[in-house]
């Protein structure tokens, strides 16, 4: 089964193609990790075209779409989620969302990525790679978890521990999507893991407009 995997939860967008078999094995055929900053919308569809070209395949060859649901900065995150939803809709394909942190590193670990506002998105995993806690958003000083940490090393100082550099990968996305690929009825809604409410407070009283 040919899987297109996407993720825009971090400043490095990922587009990958993998051949997935029902035994759970996935062979990555092509992958692009593009440092995008806040230009995910500009660069994601060109990256998809590139991985298809790299693998000598076309849109018509795809069987399923997998996308990271974050957590991550909202604007970029939505670009990936809506792209996956629209591609799948246009081709009549199933689409599955996974927690992006599940696709960072492997084995027993605590994943930390940049949540801005001096906080990290985090999740913890056991030796089998299963998520045991999170995803959450917290100040690194308040995380209070043992390592090993993987993800964004910029937070090593504030965590008081080393952070091994690791990013979202196509293989990681496929691994995280395994249960849904095996049993599509287990798929959840294709909605971002925002973890934060929109910044908006209703006005408390009607203020004089002339002020």
């Amino acid at each position: 089964m040919l899987v297109l995997a996407l993720d825009t939860a971090t400043p490095t967008l990922v587009a990958g193609l993998a051949d997935w078999s029902e035994h759970g094995a996935a062979e990555v055929l092509a992958e692009r990790a593009v440092p995008s900053g806040n230009r995910h919308a500009e660069l994601l569809t060109p990256a998809i075209t590139s991985v298809l070209d790299d693998a000598g395949l076309t849109m018509g060859d795809l069987d399923v779409v997998v996308t990271g649901l974050g957590p991550g900065p909202f604007t970029g995150l939505r670009v990936g989620v809506v792209t996956a939803a629209a591609l799948a809709d246009a081709r009549g394909l199933p689409v599955f969302g996974v927690c992006s942190l599940d696709a960072v590193g492997s084995g027993a670990r605590t994943v930390v990525t940049d949540a801005r506002r001096k906080e990290v998105y985090w999740a913890a995993y056991d030796e089998s790679g299963a998520r045991t806690d999170g995803p959450g958003v917290v100040r690194p000083e308040d995380l209070g978890r043992p390592g090993p940490f993987v993800g964004d090393p910029a937070f090593a100082g504030r965590l008081g521990a080393d952070v091994a550099t690791a990013e979202v990968t196509t293989a990681g996305l496929l691994r995280a999507a395994g249960p849904q690929l095996l049993d599509p009825s287990s798929a959840g809604p294709l909605l971002p893991l925002y973890l934060r409410r929109p910044d908006a407070t209703p006005p408390t009283a009607i203020k004089a407009v002339s002020q």
């Binding site: 919308a41 994601l44 998809i48 075209t49 604007t75 939505r78 792209t83 629209a86 591609l87 246009a90």
Partner: peptide, 20 residues
């Protein structure tokens, strides 16, 4: 609004790409 525009732009790009 940038964030609002980007949802439409990304969706339109994906539909155009998928439909050729």
């Amino acid at each position: 609004l940038t964030g609002a525009l980007l949802v439409g732009v990304a969706a339109a790009k994906a539909y155009a790409l998928a439909l050729g």
